[in-house]
C-alpha cells in the first residue's frame, strides 16, 4: 500500500479518534488538509471567519455530545486567547487544536518565525499540552494520543504541525 501523505494521515487520525466536527480557517500550508476534511463523510466541517469562533463552536459541540477539533494557523491561536481562557479553561471543555506551525525550522518566510516563537511560549504560559508532528508516519498516533489526552484532561490540547508535514 502506498504511503499516505501528511494530510491523509492526519484525517485518518481524526477519524480513528472519533472526531466528528472540525472548524477550520485555511492558509497556504493547510489547503490540502482542509480540503480533505471538508469532503470527509462523518465529519461536520465548519469554516470560520476568525479562529476564536472555533473555540466557541467546539465548546457548544462538546456540550452537545460531539468530539470537536480545529485546524488553524499559529497566528490564529494567538488570536483566540479570550475564548480559550473564558470557555475552555474556565469550564474545562476539551478541544483538539491542530496548528499549522509556520515559522518552524526549515521555512523561508521572514514574517513567520516570531509567530512560532510566541505561539510556543503562550502554550507554555497557559500550561496546556503542546505536541509536535513533523513526519507523516507519526501523525496518526500523535493525534490519537492527543485526543485521548483532551478527553482525560478535559482541556484543549495543541498539536503543532510542521509545514513540511502538510505538503503532499
Amino acid at each position: 500500500m502506498a504511503n499516505l501523505s501528511g494530510p491523509e494521515e492526519i484525517v485518518k487520525g481524526l477519524k480513528e479518534s472519533g472526531v466528528d466536527i472540525v472548524s477550520t480557517l485555511p492558509e497556504n500550508a493547510t489547503t490540502k488538509l482542509v480540503s480533505l476534511i471538508s469532503k470527509e463523510p462523518g465529519i461536520i466541517h465548519v469554516p470560520l471567519a476568525r479562529e476564536e469562533e472555533g473555540f466557541g463552536i467546539s465548546s457548544g459541540a462538546y456540550l452537545g455530545g460531539k468530539k470537536p477539533a480545529m485546524v488553524i494557523q499559529n497566528s490564529g491561536f494567538l488570536n483566540s486567547l479570550g475564548a480559550i481562557t473564558e470557555l475552555n479553561i474556565m469550564c474545562q471543555i476539551p478541544v483538539l487544536v491542530l496548528i499549522s506551525h509556520v515559522g518552524h525550522p526549515g521555512e523561508r518566510y521572514v514574517i513567520h518565525p516570531p509567530l512560532a516563537r510566541m505561539a510556543e511560549a503562550v502554550t507554555k504560559s497557559i500550561e496546556l499540552p503542546c505536541l509536535l508532528i513533523e513526519r507523516p508516519e507519526n501523525a496518526r498516533d500523535v493525534i490519537k494520543n492527543a485526543q485521548l489526552l483532551c478527553e482525560v484532561s478535559k482541556l484543549p490540547v495543541f498539536v503543532m504541525m510542521a509545514p513540511r508535514l502538510l505538503r503532499g
Binding site: G56, S58, L63, L87
Partner: peptide
C-alpha cells in the same frame, strides 16, 4: 458560536 456548535450537535 457556542450556540452554533450546540445546534449542529
Amino acid at each position: 458560536m457556542v450556540g452554533l456548535g450546540l445546534a449542529l450537535a
